[in-house]
Amino acid sequence: MAGHDLSLQRVTPPTDTASEASLSAHIARFSARLRSHGIDLSLSDEIDALLALQLVDIRTEEQVFLALRTALKVNRRHWSIFNLIFDRMWRQAEGLAALPNPRENERKAAGRLPCRIRLTERTPTKDEVEESNDRNKAGGYTPEEQMRHKTFDECTTEDFVAMQQLLDRLARMLKTRCSRRRVLEKSGDVVDLRHSFRGSLAVGGEMIELAKTTRAVELPHLVLLCDTSGSMDSHSRFLLMFALSLKKVAPRSETFAFNTRLTRLTHWLSPENVTSTVEQLARGVEDWSGGTRIGACLLEFTDSWLTQTVCSDTTLIILSDGLDQGDPDLLKQAMVRLRRRARRIIWLNPLMGDDRYRPEAKGMKTALPYIHHLAPAHSLAALEAMLPLLAT
């Protein structure tokens, strides 16, 4: 079974067995359910949860339970809610055995879960949580939940504003990732003696005020290549909206569109008026909703823009269904160059929203050995599950 390190070097076609993506997606769904019951979680907490499961025996319920509750930093007053939702989503669904084990040597552990803390405040009963879950299964989602799970090809132009607000909120989650680098901050958590002594020189050597530092927020360096061919028509507008949202929180990001030729979009992006910007892009990009030559366009990108936009800390995101009508040898040449230059290549394929999908198209099969992660991009929930890959 493949390891579950986020720096996975090669992607294999989806199989019936669970994969790293399924574990990441399950944690994202679990976190979303906790948020819907009033437990505040950040993207960093979700990443910590995924990493924590690599340190325990995932086949043992007690270890998974304690690892998730600790990594997600669940407040003691929310333990009862956490316990009930954990029971529903990790024990009663398909069982822990259906999820991948990130450790090669499995440890068998016995024992009961620690006793639940009884709180004086009222918390939802198990029947109430199950009733809420049953309503969700029956389609009783809130409008926001319905929008999150609505596929892009089902969305209309009337959904643009609501979708953009959700995409903006989604992109802002990237700002929760802290860097190892520390910066001066009055409300910091660590005293910086060097800056404190330097500051004391201005007042005769008296250390009146201590300089403090905190960890800087690390913003990812992203390059997005969006397929705007006819087969991507129902998805490309919303994926470009996602690119606009990322541009707001990651100013260094670059965006390109490709179909039968490559077009740089970065200078056209205007986060102030998203709807008109997307319509302007649709009119300005040559051969929008036309044919597609993925290999030729990516090769043009490597010839003209690779050294200017991609470096060792760049995450390259390709938004395409992989239905290439061009020469696969050109695509292979381009992917080899991209793999050598970029830190990580993520291929987002809307067709993966269908469980029956297999990457057997000529273009997708050619690119597969050179990408780090292959993930779905058919809905807002799918993009949310992919965000931890951008923040690591």
Rank of each mutant, 00 (worst) to 15 (best):
S379E: 04
D321A: 03
E106S: 10
R343V: 01
L23W: 03
F82L: 03
S236G: 02
E104A: 15
S276R: 10
L174V: 14
L119M: 12
K248T: 15
E360K: 08
R180H: 12
L323W: 12
H378S: 14
R340E: 13
L72C: 06
W288V: 14
T70A: 11
D153W: 08
R177H: 11
G326S: 10
I317P: 00
P220H: 00
E209P: 00
V56D: 02
P369L: 08
Q9L: 14
H195M: 13
D159F: 08
T260V: 15
A28D: 12
L239P: 02
N136T: 13
A52H: 03
P220S: 10
L210R: 04
Q308V: 07
I318A: 00
L319N: 02
V217A: 07
T277C: 14
L193P: 00
Q308I: 05
H221F: 02
H26Y: 06
A2G: 07
E209H: 07
R169E: 14
S179H: 04
H4I: 15
A110Q: 09
L96S: 08
G188N: 09
S229C: 09
R112K: 11
N273R: 12
L219N: 05
N101M: 11
F82A: 02
M147W: 02
N273S: 11
L281A: 10
F238Q: 02
K186G: 03
R261Y: 06
R344Y: 04
L55E: 15
